[in-house]
Structures are given as structure tokens and as C-alpha cells.
């Protein structure tokens, strides 16, 4: 690679005394001294969260308040720091609303001491059940407290709109039966 020699401009006498620069600097800092403060005073004031923000991963319900996760464990698989732990379970055949989904998480833990907020779980989820939402501050007094269990994940996640209602369609097809 060619070396480009950059000519350094010789300093003038005044510049070599540092004084004009110091004066300039003092002027700048003086301006800031009286300028309005830019800091957000955190717990009372909170920043506006932009859309697409990756906060704490949460589990969401569909608009009918039903669990969306089917415990496929893809998020557990993809999670780079192995923060997610799922115990899959079977939905009993006599549960009217969700029996046809067959599978749902018995336990769902996200260890927020491990999570790196990468969003891969949200990316990979085939059921659009896990979302990184606005919540950005997690704290606790023990390691156990920093593990979000299923109920807490749903509490944090709430309900999000659904574009597909995949399982409702499935159930409708089942009730409709075959064409012949």
C-alpha cells in the first residue's frame, strides 16, 4: 500500500503558547456550563422506546388470551448463551380450546443473567410466541430471581395482535372435515 505523507501544518507562535486554544476551550466549556442539561434522570424520567427495540424476551398470548408457544424448543436451540430452558408438555385431549395444538410448554425459563438480548429467539419462533419488547431493566437480589419463569414471561409479554390465527384455522378445517 502506498504511503501517503501528510504534511503537518507548522504551528504559529500563538498556537505554540497554547493560549488561544485554551481560551477557546474555556469558552466552549463555559457555554456548556450554562446550557440546559441533557441527562435523563432515569427512574423518574424514561426514554421513549423506539419500535423494534430489543428488550427483555417475553412470551405473548394471542388476542384471545391463549398461549401461543408450542414448546418447539427452537428458541432454546438457537439461543447463543443457552439462556432458555423449556420443559415441553402435552396439552390434555379434553382441553376444549387448545387440545388440537397438542403441545405446550410445561415450564419455560429464561435466565436473564445469561440472555444477551440478541433477539434470535424471536427471529426463530415459528409461532410468533416470543418477543423482545420494551422492558429493558431487570434486577433482582439473587440468581434465582433473575430467571424469568413462564408466568412472569406471560405477565411481561401480555397480548400482541396476531396475523395468522394458525391454530384456529386448523381447528376450523378439522370441524369442516374433508371435501368428500
Amino acid at each position: 500500500m502506498a504511503v501517503i505523507t501528510v504534511e503537518r501544518k507548522p504551528l504559529t507562535f500563538l498556537e505554540r503558547t497554547y493560549l488561544p486554544q485554551i481560551a477557546g476551550g474555556l469558552k466552549t466549556t463555559l457555554k456548556h456550563l450554562v446550557a440546559p442539561k441533557k441527562t435523563l434522570e432515569y427512574p423518574e424520567q424514561r426514554p421513549a422506546i423506539p419500535t423494534g427495540y430489543r428488550g427483555v424476551p417475553t412470551l405473548v398470548m394471542d388476542p384471545n388470551g391463549r398461549e401461543k408457544c408450542v414448546s418447539c424448543q427452537l428458541c432454546e436451540f438457537v439461543c447463543p448463551p443457552k439462556a432458555i430452558r423449556i420443559t415441553p408438555g402435552e396439552i390434555p385431549a379434553d382441553q376444549p380450546d387448545r387440545a388440537h395444538v397438542e403441545k405446550g410448554p410445561k415450564a419455560f425459563d429464561i435466565d436473564m443473567l445469561r440472555c444477551i438480548y440478541c433477539g434470535l429467539c424471536q427471529e426463530v419462533c415459528p409461532e410468533e410466541a416470543i418477543f423482545l419488547q420494551n422492558q429493558f431493566s431487570m434486577s433482582g437480589y439473587s440468581r434465582e430471581e433473575m430467571v424469568n419463569h413462564k408466568d412472569r414471561l406471560y405477565e411481561l409479554g401480555g397480548t400482541l395482535p396476531d396475523a395468522h390465527f394458525k391454530w384456529d384455522k386448523k381447528k376450523a378445517a378439522e370441524e369442516h372435515g374433508n371435501a368428500h
Binding site: 466549556t29 456548556h32 456550563l33 450554562v34 446550557a35 440546559p36 442539561k37 441533557k38 441527562t39 434522570e41
Partner: peptide, 10 residues
């Protein structure tokens, strides 16, 4: 305080 004010902090 002076440091903070100069840096636009409270």
C-alpha cells in the same frame, strides 16, 4: 458539580 454542568449533566 462543575464537571457535571460542563458535561451537560445535573
Amino acid at each position: 458539580k462543575v464537571a457535571a454542568w460542563i458535561q451537560d449533566r445535573p
